[in-house]
Amino acid sequence: MWNWFHRLGAPKSFYEISGYLVPLLGTLAALTLLTGVVWALAFVPADYQQGNTVRIMYIHVPSAIVAQSSYMMMAIAGIVFLIWRIKLADVALECAAPVGATLTLLALATGAIWGKPTWGTWWVWDARLTSTLVLLFLFLGVMALRSAMSGRESAGRASAMLAIVGLVNLPIIKYSVDWWFTLHQPSSLSLMKKPAMPPEMFIPLLVMVLGFYLFFFAIWMMRIRAEILEREQRTGWVRELLAGEHAR
């Protein structure tokens, strides 16, 4: 088990293994997303209250879910890096932040687009919107700290530390914002409460969530591969690889 773990942690073997995984994940993601989108846009019945606007949910909910778990995965990569000093974990952390931030932004944007026809306003200081906004700030913080530091080793350790501090704080922030919402908002927002969804709406949503996860993993892995090449550009195996590419 540990042997395998360390082998996967070596940049070269990760690069080789992920070379097979990326096309597989990418194809699966494309297929799942295509199925999900066609299903959600064309075949799912319109909501009896929200009409066709409900279809925005099929992008909004998956991007929000995957954005949250990408923060968690980023922080776990940080823990792995701080404890075992596996360089690959640092690469993974660096590459997860922009993807996670983009997904968070997508969740906020689709939420605003859905809010306009449904609530009549682009933005509400609702608990979930606000905690998603704070999640975006946490991603931006990790990215800002990393880009401000020059040494790669210390930048990696500092951003890992920050990601872990953020992970510990995330539930506290989330609960405090939920609580703030219940204190301040008028009851008109109770339509935020999830309706019990019929299965013909719920299953395509699950397909979309799966598709977003696959998409995230594919993009994450692609970024990690590119970053490995950049960091290891002076090593023998990358030179050989590049020479092989040139010869072709």
Binding site: F137, G141, A148, L162, V165, G166, N169, I173, S176, V177
Partner: peptide
């Protein structure tokens, strides 16, 4: 945050970006 941003060129700015989101619960 102060410890993490030690020695950076724009320490104050980065400090605010990384710490202010963590202040949300206390503010609320």
């Amino acid at each position: 945050g102060g410890a993490l941003t030690l020695g950076l060129r724009q320490a104050g700015l980065v400090l605010s970006i990384i710490v202010l989101p963590l202040y949300v619960p206390v503010l609320i």
